[in-house]
């Protein structure tokens, strides 16, 4: 799909600028041009497509669907898949949480959605696809969905309602199925300008982080020898995966910049499973979100929630290191 881009990057750096393909600088610049354009294109396409899906499938619809239908466990699968297509900002996690339980959606299913929504978001998918290709991206997305289902299911079984704030418990007691909401009747042509504008805003918002990330990645790509990291991080170290997840948590705000760097770490010898675990920690767990959740649950529940997700991420990391 991007062969033409490789030709362009080669031509630009090696012919037009006349920098030798064998030089460190040439390799770094070539990588930078190739990755920046590739990720920018993917990011724009994916945010636009997701914007279209979302325009017809807003989170209110998801909530009402989950609130009305009881499907013997299948609702976990739906909640998790919905988490992928709806955009998410950690600042919305609290209203979402309340809105879901208010509609009578069980806690476990609410958690499923809350796990998958940030973990598999449109920006992460686009950068993943640009940096690692579609196969690894598919693995990441499917793992994210399964992780959300498993995490929510486990948390749902733990009967954690007693750890919620009192006012939230009252909401649950008075929960009622949501009634139908008014449906937008605008056609796609009418919606499209706004969808495009929103996609632009998203790309613009993360653009600077991505460029910095690719810049660091490009420098490492050009100047560090292949398998440089294999010496330090390899599959033999049992502690590498848990450490990767934990190290990822504080980096949430820079998720867009972290992925291009990790791409190079993998190319230079870091095991892919360890890298995926790290990125899941970066994208899926955030401290600001934990602080916001304090308004609806106590610290004990936040700790249980976060450690369950972290545990599942570590497990996925080990699994990928074995099978990939």
């Amino acid at each position: 799909m991007f062969t033409w881009l490789k030709y362009f990057a080669d031509w630009l750096i090696f012919s037009a600028f006349g920098i030798s393909a064998q030089s460190h600088l040439g390799e770094a610049l070539n990588f930078f041009v190739l990755d920046t354009i590739k990720i920018a294109i993917l990011l724009f396409i994916i945010t636009t497509v997701m914007g279209m899906v979302n325009s017809y499938f807003p989170v209110e619809k998801v909530r009402n669907f989950l609130s009305r239908n009881k499907m013997y466990g299948l609702e976990y699968v739906f909640a998790s898949s919905f988490g992928v297509v709806t955009p998410f900002c950690s600042c919305s996690s609290v209203p979402l949480f309340i809105g879901f339980v208010k509609g009578g959606i069980p806690l476990g299913i609410t958690f499923t959605y809350l796990i998958t929504a940030p973990l598999v978001n449109e920006v992460a998918i686009a950068i993943f696809a640009g940096a690692f290709g579609f196969k690894v991206t598919a693995i990441y997305v499917i793992t994210g969905i399964v992780l959300g289902i498993t995490g929510g299911f486990v948390l749902g079984k733990l009967k954690l309602e007693k750890y919620l704030s009192t006012w939230v418990q009252n909401i649950i007691t008075n929960a009622q199925t949501e009634e139908a909401l008014e449906i937008e009747k605008r056609s796609l042509t009418q919606r499209f300008p706004n969808i495009l504008k929103e996609a632009f805003t998203i790309v613009k918002g993360v653009g600077i982080y991505i460029i910095i990330g690719i810049g660091i990645g490009a420098a490492m790509h050009g100047f560090l020898p292949t398998s440089f990291f294999e010496h330090y991080i390899n599959k033999g170290q049992w502690y590498a995966v848990p450490l990767a997840v934990i190290m990822g948590v504080p980096m949430y705000s820079n998720a867009a910049g972290v992925i291009p760097v990790v791409q190079v770490l993998v190319a230079k010898g870091v095991p892919l499973g360890t890298a995926i675990a790290f990125m899941m920690g970066v994208v899926g767990l955030s401290l600001p979100e934990a602080m916001l959740l304090k308004k609806v649950m106590n610290m004990k529940l936040i700790a249980i929630y976060f450690s369950t997700i972290a545990f599942l991420m570590i497990l996925s990391g080990y699994l990928f290191n074995i099978i990939l």
């Binding site: 989170v59 209110e60 909530r63 900002c89 600042c91 919305s92 609290v94 209203p95 979402l96 309340i98 809105g99 208010k102 006012w167 909401i171 308004k295 609806v296």
Partner: peptide
């Protein structure tokens, strides 16, 4: 305030 906010039945902010 989140309790105040929920009176308006919003799911996403702002």
């Amino acid at each position: 305030d989140i309790e105040e906010m929920m009176k308006y039945n919003v799911l996403t902010t702002p």
